[in-house]
Design a binder for these strands. Structure first.
Ligand SMILES: [Mn+2]
Ligand SMILES: [Mn+2]
Ligand SMILES: [Zn+2]
Ligand SMILES: [Zn+2]
Lengths: 140, 140
DNA sequence: TCGTATGTGAGAATGATTCCCATGAGCACG
DNA sequence: CGTGCTCATGGGAATCATTCTCACATACGA
């Protein structure tokens, strides 16, 4: 039922690059693409190769330290988030993100799956909208 | 709140290619990628250019006649589906798909959005699992 | 039937992600 | 502290889905 990735054996080796990626993610609010993160790191001076940014992000996702979200245009976006299962409320305009953890939707997903004989179930839930700040701004 | 796309003016022009795409989708069960559909059309003889397949799919999505789903590897998958709002229960193994429409999850999404001051809300919900048939097969 | 706005197709262009591989650097051990 | 082995890095090439270009075809209203 649960997968911990990281094949087996030894721990992951420490590196300036991985720290830089995780540190940056800690300071940011919304979801950011790998390309964005790479550019931000370059600006700030903690330059990291693009391929390495992708590897670091994948590793962090496998470790359950990041959430991935696929934007409608196909780009993957990453965000540091709490380790327990939850979902997101994302502002389409500014990317502001609120983590939402509510039992109802969990029970709902489990129930519909069971009703149709599905097992080994996971669910993917995201709510998109315009946050209060952006709504007010646009209203201007 | 609702968007009908199709800019304005005249109706969409009829064409053999668009009919072929829609007809094929009508005969298929699960979600299929544009590349898959293009290959299937070519096999069956109703050959259609790849770019045209993409254009037809996009048009059908805009018309609300298809649902799009983005697989974890980034490929978009399309499926003919009922016009009213609903969600999907998809088998990871065989692609079999069940449409699910339940008020609870709709209310849930609306409520969490409202609680955080978000407006103009949409939600994206998919449940993945192994269907009964595939589970039995794997069991051997 | 004509004229014209639209649709089509082949191939080029784009852009994100992954691969390759020579080089660099953790870290366990002495 | 060195040394060595293994894993990590980076940059450029390769992949691959999707979009763009543009010359040509065609639906369809008049
Ligand atoms: Mn999160
Ligand atoms: Mn559907
Ligand atoms: Zn916002
Ligand atoms: Zn199945």
């Amino acid at each position: 039922m649960s997968v911990t990735e990281q094949p087996e054996g030894g721990a992951r080796r420490q590196s300036r690059q991985r720290s830089a990626v995780l540190t940056l993610l800690d300071e940011l609010d919304g979801f950011r693409s790998a390309q964005d993160l790479h550019a931000l790191l370059r600006e700030r001076g903690d330059s990291v190769g693009l391929a390495t940014v992708y590897r670091a992000l994948q590793a962090l996702v496998d470790d359950g330290q990041l959430d991935v979200l696929r934007s409608p245009d196909g780009e993957a976006a990453y965000r540091r988030c709490s380790p327990s299962h939850h979902h997101h409320l994302v502002c389409r305009s500014c990317g502001r993100t609120v983590e939402v953890a509510d039992p109802p939707v969990e029970r709902w997903a489990a129930r519909v799956a069971a009703e149709h004989g599905f097992v080994d179930v996971q669910h993917d839930v995201e709510v998109f909208g315009t946050c209060a700040v952006c709504a007010a701004t646009r209203q201007g």
